[in-house]
Design a protein around this nucleic acid. Structure first.
Lengths: 331, 331
DNA sequence: CTGTTAGCGCGTTCAC
DNA sequence: GTGAACGCGCTAACAG
């Protein structure tokens, strides 16, 4: 039996005060005398009032909503970002509007439009490759924006992330230092993966080394594609001594194939991944990887928005969170 | 430079029509003559109008928002639920409001209150253990509700899930059929895990078999706790021949410990899990598990709400989605 | 098919 | 510390 909707006015009548007093009692209790406050709270309980943030948001132009746009949620790091952002936002009385867009830019464009129609107080975007139209809209509406999970010299507003090219550099240096020279690459065709492989190749080239062979699979590269990719790479170039993958999932597939061929990893073949896939099936998985703290990035992004909303405009607009190169399986 | 906000009235002026015509052109294009429609669309583009669903929702009492409340998002199955629900909702023009509550009921109570303040058109809840106050609120507001991931004889509204007791039964039968008799249990202290272990024990008891020893860890049981738990179980009862775990993650920890003791799994020790953790680190992980299709449950829940919102009230209110017992590692 | 009128429920701005 | 009037931007219901 849905009871008739209870409004703030009903509460006001029940408490014997004016509507605005109820509003204040709910939103800025310190501005209301304790006695009045108690009366209001009692009336709220008695009437079963639930506040209406549609009306509130419309009147105040503050929706207490923050949108988070992610390509997928089925990756541990992105799930961590959701968790990290949610924690911060909830603590500050905000709610999360989640958008999942996959890896196609045009989907983001549509989603951003839909999201903006809710008038969120802030938007967190993954990556910094957006259509012009998306950028326009965001700038026009004037909502604070954090681009995350990437670095860019021309941010829409704020940036909290790391450079995927630097990741590529670091991986190249790591492998070169260990003496590897004949490189294969296996990458998913998502833009950030591309930046990593780009950085990887550039860093190699500086040392006069070239990638022997590269293969690409559709994003987000799944494990079987990693294995199949490895089959092709190793069949065509049996003398490869290192394979650089755009994700741990792909790397995992490569590892399985390598082991089934009796290759010792990393002695015969080094494998590098990216992400933070849990390799706990192995006591000590013999592949190195680059790890990023998703929860931290999510929390920092949320915090950046909250600061801005508090009028605190002093912080850096561009923050490099860095990443961690994890070396495993070596002697 | 945030431009001044563009309202529907601005568009109406620009198009030379009345505001309501713009509204219709945007929401029910088929009710508007093509010529008018074109004029409006042109005006929308020219002005850069973005619709305001706060205002729209307030006026129409339809927010086009559906809330999904989950204990965590860092579990593959729950992430799949988000994905499944998002897909259906997006296709129908709805957006997802995500709430993550952990495993404490009082947190859900607060979150539900906050969520209802957005006046979502529907709410999807995980499980069916809610405080009275939560149930009251939901019933009072009259929002369509789907309780999922569980079965209950006294639903708030609709239910789409499976019986955790049946899962326990099925596991018990499976292990008994294979000849195992000396059972240990390792479970997280979340309510649904409790129902599974309960069902497991009852089914065993019917065959005159009792669980030798049970241990509990805080929800959501992590892998190290699985391993530590296994140490204690096996130290105290070296003659166990099967361990029933409340999750694959715990089971995985048990597996690692078993292997490090040189136990053959499942010949010397059977291990049962629950969930759909990807054990791809193993070519053929030797533990059986129960698998649930999260994406399907998410999509079905969303669809159930959408049907209701379309006035379609004919479907079953209680749907048992079932689960799949996956036997692995046996001869 | 399109326009008019009248709110939706609340917060802002001033007064008191 | 509390109240009154007004408007946020849009849509329901009817009229034409």
């Amino acid at each position: 039996m849905p009871a008739p909707p209870v409004t703030l006015i009903d509460v006001a009548k029940a408490a014997g005060v004016s509507p605005i007093t109820v509003s204040r009692a709910l939103n800025e209790p310190q501005l209301v005398r304790p006695v009045t406050l108690a009366k209001v709270q009692e009336a709220v309980k008695r009437t079963g009032y639930v506040k209406n943030m549609l009306a509130g948001g419309l009147a105040s132009s503050r929706s207490k909503l923050v949108a988070l746009v992610l390509p997928t949620i089925s990756t541990q790091t992105f799930a961590d970002m959701v968790q990290g952002a949610t924690d911060r936002l909830t603590a500050a009385g905000y709610q999360l509007l989640l958008g999942i867009v996959g890896y196609e830019t045009w989907r983001e464009e549509i989603l951003v439009e839909t999201i903006l129609s809710r008038r969120p107080d802030g938007v967190i975007l993954t990556g910094s490759l957006h259509t012009d139209s998306t950028r326009q809209r965001l700038l026009q509406i004037g909502t604070p924006v954090v681009e995350t999970w990437d670095m860019t010299p021309h941010p829409i507003d704020m940036v909290i992330g790391f450079s995927h090219e630097e990741v590529g550099h670091a991986c190249a240096k790591h492998l070169l230092d260990q003496g590897y020279r004949r490189f294969g690459m296996l990458t998913a065709n998502d833009p950030r993966a591309g930046q990593r492989t780009q950085g990887f190749q550039v860093a190699l080239a500086k040392q006069g080394v070239n990638v022997v062979v590269a293969r690409q699979v559709p994003a987000p590269g799944a494990l079987p594609q990693g294995r199949i990719g490895a089959v092709k790479l190793l069949d065509e170039h049996p003398d490869l001594d290192a394979i650089f993958c755009s994700s741990d999932t792909l790397a995992h597939g490569v590892l399985i194939e390598a082991q089934s061929r009796g290759l010792r990893v990393p002695e015969d073949l080094a494998i590098m991944g990216f992400g933070d896939l849990n390799f706990s099936g192995y006591t000590n998985p013999p592949l190195s990887t680059v790890k990023v703290d998703g929860a931290k990035i999510g929390a920092m992004s949320a915090q950046a928005l909250l600061n801005r909303l508090d009028g605190d405009d002093t912080a850096e607009r561009i923050v490099n969170t860095g990443f961690e190169l994890i070396q495993r399986g070596s002697t």
